[in-house]
Simulated assay, not measured.
Amino acid sequence: MIPLERPKISTAFENRLTTKSKSLAEESADTKKARETWKTARTIRRDLKELLAGMAAGFVRCMYCGDSLGTDIDHFKPIAQDPLSAFIWSNHFLACSHCNSNKKRDQYPCSPSGECLLVDPSKEDPYDHIRLNLPTGKYLGRTDKGNETIRVFGLSRPDLELGRAHAYVRCESMLRDWSAQIGGGREDSAKAVLTALTVQPFADVLYAMIKKSYAPGAASIFHPVVLAALREVRENGKMT
C-alpha cells in the first residue's frame, strides 16, 4: 500500500454524487435501500471506476494489495456501516475482488474512541503504520491501525508476500540497469526502465525501498549503485 493522490472531480460529477446522497438522506435510507440505489446507478459507477483507475498506482491495480487488477469499487466505510456515505467521492477506492469481497467485506474496525483503524492511503502515508521487510515481502504493523489494515485486507497472504519478495529482486536489478543507462547517456532507455519501475505491480516495494534508502543503516541494506539510484529517483520526484 502506498500513498495515493485523490484527484479533484468536476463540478458536474460532484453535483451528480451530491444529488444521490441528498436523496438517500431525505429518505433516511437504510443499508438495503442504499445498496439498491448504488446498484442501479450504473453510469455513476462507470464514471467513478474510470476516475479511480487513473488514481491507482500502475495499470489499474488494487489500491490495497497493489498486486491484482482493480475490478471493484470499494466503499472504505461500508454501506452497512453508513448508508449515507454510498456516493461520497472520498469514500471510494479501487480494489481487487479478493481484497474487497473475500477479505474486507463490511469490516470497519474502530478504536474505543471511534477512530477508524484502517489506513486511508488517500489521506495518510501507509508507511507510518506498516513497514515492509523487503527480503521476505512481509508487512509488519507499527501501530494498531497498521495491524488492523494488514488483517482486514489480508496483506499477509502467502502469494502477496512471495510476490513482494520477487519484486524486491526485480527492483534492485532494474535500478542497476537504470543507473547504467543514465551513465551511458541512453536517456530514452533509462526513462523506459523508470516507467516500468513505477507502474509495475507491488509499487509498494519500490516505495518502501526509497523510504529505507534515507533511513539509518541504508548503506548496509543496499548496494551503493542501488542506493544512489533510489535517492536519485526520490529527488527527481518520480515516487515520494
Rank of each mutant, 00 (worst) to 15 (best):
R45K: 10
G58V: 14
C62R: 06
C65F: 05
G58T: 14
S68K: 12
L51P: 02
R46S: 15
L52S: 04
A56G: 05
G66S: 00
T71H: 05
A56T: 09
L52P: 00
M55R: 13
F59W: 08
D72H: 03
G58K: 12
E50K: 09
Y64H: 15
I73H: 02
A56R: 03
M55Q: 12
V60P: 00
L52A: 08
G58S: 13
C62M: 07
I73G: 03
L69I: 11
Y64N: 13
E50R: 14
R46V: 12
R45S: 09
C62H: 03
L48R: 08
A57R: 13
E50H: 05
A56L: 07
L69Y: 10
R46H: 15
D72G: 01
R45N: 07
D72E: 10
A53H: 07
L48T: 14
G70M: 02
C62I: 08
G66M: 00
A56M: 03
R45A: 05
M63D: 03
C65E: 02
V60K: 09
R46D: 15
Y64F: 15
A53M: 09
T71G: 01
C65D: 05
I44Q: 04
R46E: 15
S68P: 00
D47T: 10
R46Y: 14
D47N: 06
D67N: 11
A56I: 06
G66C: 00
L48Q: 09
C62Y: 04
E50N: 04
C65K: 02
M63F: 06
T71E: 10
G70Y: 03
G66Y: 00
Y64I: 07
M63Y: 02
E50W: 07
D72C: 02
C62D: 10
M63I: 02
D47C: 09
L52H: 01
I44G: 04
Y64K: 09
G70L: 06
D67F: 14
L52K: 01
G70E: 06
L52D: 01
E50C: 01
E50F: 07
K49T: 06
R45E: 07
C62N: 08
R46F: 12
D67T: 05
L52W: 03
R45G: 04
C65V: 03
R45F: 03
A53W: 10
D72K: 03
M63N: 05
Y64W: 14
M63S: 09
A53C: 13
L48I: 13
S68Q: 10
L52N: 02
R46C: 09
L69M: 07
A57I: 08
L69C: 07
I44K: 05
Y64Q: 13
D47S: 15
K49G: 09
V60M: 11
C62E: 08
G70T: 06
V60I: 11
E50M: 09
A56P: 00
I44V: 13
E50Y: 02
